[in-house]
Design a binder for these strands. Structure first.
Ligand SMILES: [Mn+2]
Ligand SMILES: [Mn+2]
Ligand SMILES: [Zn+2]
Ligand SMILES: [Zn+2]
Lengths: 155, 155
DNA sequence: TTCCAAATAAGAATAAAACCTATTTAAGAA
DNA sequence: TTCTTAAATAGGTTTTATTCTTATTTGGAA
């Protein structure tokens, strides 16, 4: 993928986000566009502080709070992803049998599940180039039954 | 699994940990055994604070710091697992194509990878009972090339 | 029983993320 | 264009999960 294609991609991306924001009745602020631009340019999974520092080069008065708010907003809109669950503390699991987790994105409850298909999944060969794989974590995120019920009764 | 089997299981578990600690030249303190007991009894993925409160009922002078140190120790020994961000901040990813992550447990670097097998994995039916699955996160944890090299040169 | 490295308790420190509020601004209406 | 206002921001403060510091205690070997 050449630099032209990449630039084109970024343009498309920016336009798409502009549309989503507009359709959601959200304002297209300079801050949001700069932050979006930075997170789209990065391919190394930056944290909020790193994005903050980059944005500040072009926009010295931007606040860290705005960076956080904007990133959570883009996440809610499904325009970016987050690694390592936010607002969560570490939780411990003494169950060492093979099993996986369903994590509720609203209340944070974690349920175990097993699944013949997933239980059999092995660490793929492809990661040999990246390092030595030790453990695989498979996690499904969504809304638990209780939170679905709460949402339904909000009408 | 009846209550007797469960008690038996817990006993086996405790004995196993006693052996691992002894073999590693670590002390079998009352605190460690109480904390281990609590984390093994729980099946709801408790956080450190919750374990702390439970342990404190039987051992009122235990400190939160000891709970944390013990849980990280058990984790290092491979006797329990951790869910969520340990010592890590949230990181963002604007790449919305289907892909997965290799996370180095030492330096925290995150690399993308794709794998025909994993890319095809769907959210299993089994979680219907638990709620509405929205996204699947597959993550391989291990040591990256650089950290492997560092470890080798430590000799 | 004695001894000491390892472990702990208690309190202080750190830092990621959220909160508060006065001020600014995007964007629709006039 | 100017006016209007709810939404968004800046900057400072607060919260809180986790780690650090240090004086004291203790497990376990001799
Ligand atoms: Mn589990
Ligand atoms: Mn990625
Ligand atoms: Zn929930
Ligand atoms: Zn590494």
């Amino acid at each position: 993928m050449g630099p032209d294609t990449q630039t084109q991609d970024l343009q498309n991306r920016m336009n798409h986000v502009r549309n989503v924001l507009r359709e959601s009745g959200l304002k297209l602020t300079h801050q949001r566009l700069e932050i979006l631009n930075e997170v789209c340019k990065a391919d190394d999974h930056p944290d909020a502080e790193t994005i903050y520092r980059s944005v500040r080069e072009r926009m010295p008065t931007v606040s860290l709070d705005t960076v956080y708010r904007t990133l959570w907003l883009l996440l809610d809109l499904g325009l970016i992803n987050a690694l390592g669950p936010s607002r969560e503390r570490v939780r411990f699991d003494a169950n060492t049998e093979v099993h996986h987790h369903f994590v509720c994105r609203k209340c944070g409850v974690i349920h175990d599940f097993t699944s013949p298909e997933l239980d059999g999944v092995q660490i793929p060969e492809a990661i040999r180039d990246l390092g030595q794989g030790e453990k695989m974590h498979i996690e499904v995120r969504g809304l638990c039954r209780d939170c679905l019920k709460d949402k339904a009764s909000d009408c």
